[in-house]
Computed example of a mutant assay.
Amino acid sequence: MKKLIAISTAAVALLAGTGFDAQAAGSHKVKSGESLWNIGKTYGVSVKEMQKLNDKNNHLIFPGEALQLPEKVSKDDKELLARLVHAESKGEPYEGKVAVATVVLNRVDSEQFPDSIKDVVYETSAGGIYQFSPVGNGQIDKAADEEALKAVEEAIAFRGDGNNSLYFFNPDKTSDEWIRTRKVTKTIGNHVFAQ
């Protein structure tokens, strides 16, 4: 996930109507009043990855500064992730929806799991059972709501931060004992998040 964007972010920004313009492919010229957070959300990239790519150990940026941008998450992957979040997190607080999306992104970044959002979402266990129940029961095919889409954008911008959770479960809906042995990082709503 450390590759530079291969397409011109200027064209993407103009097509998206964001008003942002890039100096060159994979870069952004900072304007007055901008923050790494809003640049990350605009381009759909991780703030932490932007900091790393630009050798920044803090959030300070200055007007006129050219920032290199990390690889962005594709529209298709965002939509797939939002559908998973929607299916897994109906009735859960917004923070929990962001955390569910973050688990998938953490798995992509982990050596223990596949290297793409699509491959993580559709991964099966040794017994052929999908890792996420909405994939197996067809709920993944239902459209995501706006809150799930927003949660995915926030999770992408915060990518690499947090408690490194790789799992989540609802203790009232699972009898799996193995998942209960994992180190709990946080409980949000009905979901327990763990490493």
Score class of each variant (00 low, 15 high):
177 E>A: 13
128 G>N: 09
165 S>I: 02
181 T>P: 06
172 D>N: 15
119 D>W: 04
122 Y>S: 08
164 N>R: 10
153 E>D: 15
133 S>I: 15
134 P>W: 00
181 T>A: 08
147 E>I: 11
177 E>V: 10
145 D>F: 03
125 S>E: 09
183 K>N: 09
166 L>H: 06
151 A>V: 01
171 P>S: 10
144 A>N: 11
130 Y>W: 12
121 V>F: 07
174 T>K: 05
158 F>K: 12
147 E>F: 10
152 V>D: 03
158 F>M: 05
174 T>A: 04
169 F>H: 07
126 A>S: 13
153 E>S: 09
157 A>Q: 04
159 R>L: 03
164 N>D: 12
165 S>P: 04
148 A>G: 05
159 R>C: 02
163 N>F: 07
168 F>N: 07
156 I>Y: 00
134 P>S: 01
148 A>Q: 03
139 Q>C: 06
129 I>S: 13
178 W>L: 12
147 E>Q: 15
137 N>W: 06
161 D>H: 08
149 L>H: 14
166 L>Q: 06
181 T>E: 09
174 T>D: 02
135 V>P: 00
131 Q>P: 00
144 A>T: 07
172 D>W: 04
128 G>W: 05
181 T>F: 07
148 A>H: 06
167 Y>I: 04
175 S>I: 07
174 T>C: 02
125 S>L: 13
157 A>T: 03
144 A>R: 07
119 D>T: 07
127 G>N: 11
150 K>L: 06
127 G>Y: 11
137 N>R: 06
166 L>E: 05
121 V>E: 01
135 V>I: 14
136 G>R: 10
122 Y>M: 11
170 N>F: 05
183 K>P: 12
171 P>F: 12
156 I>L: 02
140 I>W: 11
128 G>I: 04
182 R>D: 01
134 P>H: 03
159 R>F: 00
132 F>H: 05
152 V>H: 05
145 D>L: 05
171 P>D: 08
181 T>Q: 13
155 A>Y: 00
170 N>I: 09
153 E>A: 08
136 G>M: 06
183 K>S: 11
126 A>E: 10
155 A>M: 01
170 N>H: 05
173 K>Y: 15
168 F>W: 14
161 D>V: 07
128 G>P: 13
120 V>P: 01
141 D>W: 11
182 R>I: 03
151 A>E: 05
